[in-house]
């Protein structure tokens, strides 16, 4: 019996995980279903675009510019070990566009937007605002979830594109300012080296990560427990789940795009 106890715990944990995956998948299908069926709530969608996209620009820009700059310094220092300092523009470009741009933007959105969506919806649930929506003949999945997830899918790829450009710019500033690179040559090398697939993968990742970030915020918010503790748990859980899922999805997408 003592030996079976850990196995039982493992089995229960596995079943709970599978059940949670099933619930999230069902929630995602419902959200997608509501995105394509009227009525559509334009104001909610516009506000979600503003909150997820426009208002995230400062944090995305700052993250990208510092990361691009640090990347240039690291690649220059690492490249110097085998006389390959000249690859800074190419590696900064590929590093930012293929990986760091989408992942950092995804994680920043998870921190900033997922938490905010989860806390807002969880508070609405705790204060009976979700019940009030239902009594006012408004489906909360359609009014709260669908606009946010759709906005995440649309606007995060644009944020990733902005992050990629600012990250490359950060590398350019450091490389031309303190590492002795020629500004025009640096840009030419960057543009020449990047391929269409790099950009497509970057934007696709942004779309998937945006969807994950918004979906997790909505899922945990809608399934929040009672009181302040429930809101806190929902917020924490949403960010954890979004961050892990974004990193896992990044691994799978990188494999799908570049290991074929």
């Amino acid at each position: 019996m003592i030996l079976l106890s850990p196995l039982g715990a493992l089995g229960r944990a596995t079943l709970q995980t599978l059940a949670a995956i099933g619930r999230v998948a069902l929630f995602a299908f419902q959200a997608i279903g509501h995105m394509v069926r009227p009525p559509f709530y334009g104001r909610e969608f516009a506000l979600a675009l503003l909150n997820i996209g426009w208002l995230s620009l400062p944090v995305v820009g700052l993250t990208a510019i510092f990361t691009g700059g640090a990347l240039a310094l690291q690649i220059y220092a690492g490249g110097a070990r085998f006389n390959a300092e000249a690859v800074v523009p190419q590696i900064v470009a590929i590093g930012m566009v293929r990986e760091l741009g989408p992942v950092l933007v995804g994680l920043m959105i998870a921190a900033r937007v997922t938490s905010s969506i989860a806390a807002e919806i969880a508070t609405m649930k705790v204060t009976e605002q979700i019940d009030a929506l239902v009594t006012l003949s408004t489906n909360p999945m359609k009014y709260l979830v669908a606009p946010r997830v759709l906005a995440g899918l649309i606007v995060v790829p644009l944020l990733v594109a902005v992050g990629d450009v600012i990250g490359i710019f950060g590398g350019w500033v450091v490389a031309t300012g303190s590492l002795g690179f020629n500004p025009a040559t640096y840009l030419k090398n960057t543009v020449d080296f990047l391929e269409l697939l790099d950009i497509v993968s970057s934007l696709t990742k942004g779309c998937i990560f945006g969807g994950i970030a918004a979906l997790m915020g909505c899922y945990f918010g809608m399934n929040s427990g009672r009181g302040a503790q429930g809101v806190g748990k929902a917020t924490k859980g949403s960010v954890e789940a979004a961050a892990v899922l974004i990193l896992a999805a990044n691994f799978l997408l990188t494999g799908a795009f570049f290991s074929l």
Binding site: M124, T127, E128, Q129, A132
Partner: peptide
Amino acid sequence: MLFQGGALF
């Protein structure tokens, strides 16, 4: 329906 806490948005 009038909710206990108002439930205003």
